[in-house]
C-alpha cells in the first residue's frame, strides 16, 4: 500500500503519460459530444476497423445462406403465394393512393402552396455487428458512399425507426427512437395535437412529457411525425398511446407510448431523403433562385 501511494505520488513517466492521455480522451469526448467536427476523423479510423467488422459478420451470413439454401420447395411455394396475394392487395391500394396524390396536388395548387414534399428512398440492410452494449443503436450496410448523411431519418414498412448518427464510407450507425438520447416531434393523428416523444432506454417504450392535464389525448391514439424541426418528414406513424397517468403532484401527464415498429425485429430498413420539388411557376421562388 505504501509503495502504491509513493508511486502514485512520485511523478513517474507512466503517470505523466496517463495524465496526458486521460486529458486527451476528455478533450476528444467533449468535442465529440458537443460538435460534429470529429466525424471525419471517425471515418478515417472506421476504414481501419471496417475489415474486422466485415469478417465478424461472415459466420452469421454463412449460417443464414445455408439455412436459406435448404429451405423446402413447398415452404417456398406457400411463402411465394402469400407474397403474391399481399402484392396484389398493396397494388390495389397504391392505385387509390395515386389518384389521392393527384387530388392533393391539385388542391394544394388551388390554395397557392408551391412546395410538395417528395421522398427518395434507399433500402438498407442491418449489419449484424455488436455495438456498444446497452445502447439502442443499429448498424446499416449503406454509408456516405450512398449519400447517407448524419441526421437522416430511417423508417421501415410500419413507421419511423430512428435517425443516422454516424456515417462512414460503407456503413452507418442509427440511433433507434428508444435510445434515451433520441427525441422526435409528433402529433396526434386524430386532432393534430403536437408533442415530442423521447426515448426511455427501455425497449418498446417512448415517453411523451410536457402534456398538460387538459390535453385531448386518449389511450390508443396514433401519433404521427409532425415534421417540426425539419428532421423527420411529416406523416409517418411513430407510436400508439398505451398509458396515461395523472400524478397529483405533477402538473403534467405521464404518457407512455408503444412504437408502431418492432424496433429490434426485421433485417431491412429504408433510408429517406426528404426533398422539396421546386415549383418553377411560382414567381417568388423563381426570384429566390435567380438571386
Amino acid at each position: 500500500m505504501r509503495e502504491l501511494i509513493r508511486r502514485l505520488g512520485g511523478v513517474t513517466p507512466a503517470t505523466v503519460r496517463i495524465l496526458v492521455l486521460v486529458a486527451l480522451s476528455i478533450a476528444l469526448m467533449l468535442i465529440d459530444h458537443r460538435t460534429q467536427q470529429l466525424e471525419k476523423f471517425r471515418n478515417i479510423v472506421q476504414t481501419v476497423v471496417y475489415p474486422i467488422m466485415y469478417i465478424s459478420t461472415m459466420p452469421r451470413e454463412m449460417v443464414r445462406g445455408f439455412t436459406e439454401s435448404i429451405e423446402t420447395s413447398s415452404n417456398l411455394q406457400t411463402v411465394n403465394e402469400s407474397l403474391r396475394q399481399e402484392n396484389l392487395l398493396l397494388h390495389s391500394r397504391l392505385e387509390k393512393l395515386h389518384s389521392l396524390e393527384a387530388d392533393n396536388l391539385r388542391l394544394k395548387h388551388l390554395l397557392g402552396q408551391s412546395e410538395q414534399i417528395a421522398e427518395q428512398v434507399l433500402l438498407a440492410e442491418l449489419v449484424e455487428v455488436s455495438l456498444e452494449p446497452y445502447t439502442q443503436q443499429i448498424s446499416l450496410n449503406k454509408g456516405s458512399r450512398d449519400d447517407v448523411y448524419v441526421g437522416q431519418p430511417v423508417i421501415n414498412g410500419d413507421g419511423v425507426v430512428g435517425q443516422v448518427v454516424h456515417t462512414s464510407q460503407f456503413q452507418s450507425t442509427v440511433t433507434l427512437l428508444t435510445d434515451p438520447g433520441s427525441a422526435i416531434p409528433v402529433m396526434v393523428m386524430r386532432n393534430g395535437l403536437r408533442g415530442v416523444l423521447f426515448g426511455t432506454g427501455v425497449r418498446n417504450k417512448l415517453a411523451m412529457p410536457y402534456m398538460t392535464a387538459d390535453a385531448d389525448i386518449r389511450i390508443g391514439d396514433l401519433l404521427i411525425s409532425s415534421g417540426m424541426g425539419g428532421r423527420f418528414p411529416t406523416g409517418y406513424p411513430v407510436a400508439t398511446v398505451t398509458e396515461i397517468r395523472q400524478d397529483p403532484s405533477d402538473e403534467f401527464l405521464t404518457i407512455n407510448t408503444l412504437p408502431v415498429t418492432q424496433l429490434d425485429h426485421g433485417r431491412e430498413v429504408l433510408l429517406i431523403w426528404p426533398e422539396t420539388i421546386k415549383d418553377q411557376n411560382n414567381p417568388l421562388q423563381q426570384e429566390f433562385i435567380d438571386e
Binding site: 496517463i18 478533450a27 469526448m29
Partner: peptide, 16 residues
C-alpha cells in the same frame, strides 16, 4: 469507433 460510442470513452478506460 467500432462501437459507435463517444470518441475517447473506451480510450480513456483502457489506458487507465
Amino acid at each position: 469507433v467500432m462501437y459507435g460510442s463517444m470518441l475517447g470513452q473506451n480510450a480513456m478506460s483502457l489506458s487507465v
